[in-house]
Computed example of a mutant assay.
Amino acid sequence: MDNSRTVSTLNDLLNITNDRIKGFSKVEDKVWETSSSLKNDYDQMVRESQTMKSELVELISEKGGEVDDSSTTAGALHRTWIDVKNAFGGENAESTLENVVFGENAAIDAYEEALEDGNLCPQSTAIVSGQLEKLKSSYAKFETLNKSID
Rank of each mutant, 00 (worst) to 15 (best):
K63E: 13
S138D: 04
K85M: 14
Q44K: 15
D12K: 14
Y111D: 06
G89Y: 08
I149D: 09
W81H: 09
T72D: 10
N3F: 07
M45W: 05
K134C: 06
T17R: 02
N119L: 06
L97Y: 12
G130A: 06
K26P: 04
E113K: 14
Y111H: 09
A106K: 10
L38N: 03
G64C: 06
N105M: 03
E62D: 11
N40P: 00
L56N: 03
V128D: 06
S37A: 12
C121D: 14
I108D: 06
E66A: 13
N3Y: 11
M52N: 13
Y139V: 05
E62W: 01
N99C: 00
G64K: 08
S138P: 02
Y139M: 04
S36P: 10
N15T: 09
D2G: 01
Q123I: 11
A76N: 14
V46C: 10
M1V: 12
Y42V: 13
T17C: 10
E116L: 09
E133R: 09
N40T: 12
T17A: 06
T73P: 00
R5K: 15
F24G: 12
T6E: 15
S35C: 11
P122C: 00
M52K: 10
S36H: 07
D83Y: 02
T34M: 08
F142T: 00
K22S: 15
E66P: 02
L115I: 03
D2F: 01
K134H: 10
I16Q: 10
K85G: 09
N146T: 00
Q123V: 09
N92P: 05
F102S: 15
T72W: 02
K85R: 15
L145T: 13
K53G: 13
D43S: 14
P122H: 00
I82Y: 05
D19A: 01
Q131D: 12
G65R: 02
L97D: 04
V31D: 04
A106S: 12
L135P: 02
D83L: 04
D19Q: 01
G64T: 07
